[in-house]
Computed example of a mutant assay.
Amino acid sequence: MDPPQINFVDNNSILIINRHGLMKQVFVPFKVIVAVNISIFRIGNVVYVDEVSQDRQNRLMYRVAGKWWHYDLFVIAVGF
């Protein structure tokens, strides 16, 4: 079985779906909340994503403070 593919719009935006099934394109920079203590970031810190991409295993990556991080270390702080 092939791994799932993550398709994002481009390096400057992603598509998100809220709990009601509505979809929205979110453009960088967008706010995220740190979900795991990592490097200089602590749980609950609000930081900004400057760029999005994917790694070799097709996992979504965020560029925050000049470094690349896996998306699941953060919670998107965008409501609609």
Rank of each mutant, 00 (worst) to 15 (best):
Y71N: 08
K31V: 01
V46E: 11
G66M: 05
V75R: 05
V47P: 02
G66N: 11
M61G: 02
N7G: 05
L22W: 14
F41L: 05
A65K: 13
G21A: 06
F8K: 13
F30Y: 11
D72H: 13
N58T: 10
D10H: 08
L22K: 14
I16D: 00
D72M: 03
K31S: 15
I14C: 02
R19N: 14
R59W: 08
F27R: 09
G66K: 10
P29C: 03
P3R: 15
D55T: 06
I33E: 13
P3Q: 14
N7I: 06
G21F: 00
Y48D: 12
Q5F: 07
Q54R: 14
V49F: 00
P3C: 05
I38K: 11
D2P: 13
G21Q: 04
D2Q: 09
Y71T: 04
Q5M: 04
H20I: 09
I33P: 02
A77Q: 12
N11D: 10
D72V: 01
V36E: 12
V78N: 00
R19Y: 11
I6E: 13
I16V: 12
V36L: 09
V75S: 01
F80I: 06
Y71V: 06
Q25Y: 03
L73P: 04
Q25H: 09
P4G: 07
Q5C: 03
I33A: 05
V32Y: 05
N58F: 09
I14W: 03
V28R: 09
W68S: 06
D50G: 07
R63P: 01
V52A: 02
A65I: 07
W69K: 04
S39K: 12
L60H: 01
A65N: 15
W68H: 03
M23L: 11
V46D: 02
V26L: 12
Y48E: 15
I43F: 10
S39Q: 08
I16W: 05
I16K: 04
V9F: 08
V49L: 06
N58R: 11
M23F: 13
E51I: 09
P3L: 12
I76V: 03
V49S: 08
V32K: 01
V34R: 04
I6D: 05
D55M: 06
V47G: 02
W69R: 01
V9M: 06
F74D: 00
V75F: 02
L60R: 05
G21D: 04
I43Q: 11
R56K: 08
V78L: 03
S13I: 11
I14V: 13
F30H: 02
W69E: 00
N11A: 10
L15A: 08
V52L: 03
N7V: 09
I33R: 15
F8C: 00
Y62M: 06
I14K: 07
M23G: 12
Q5E: 10
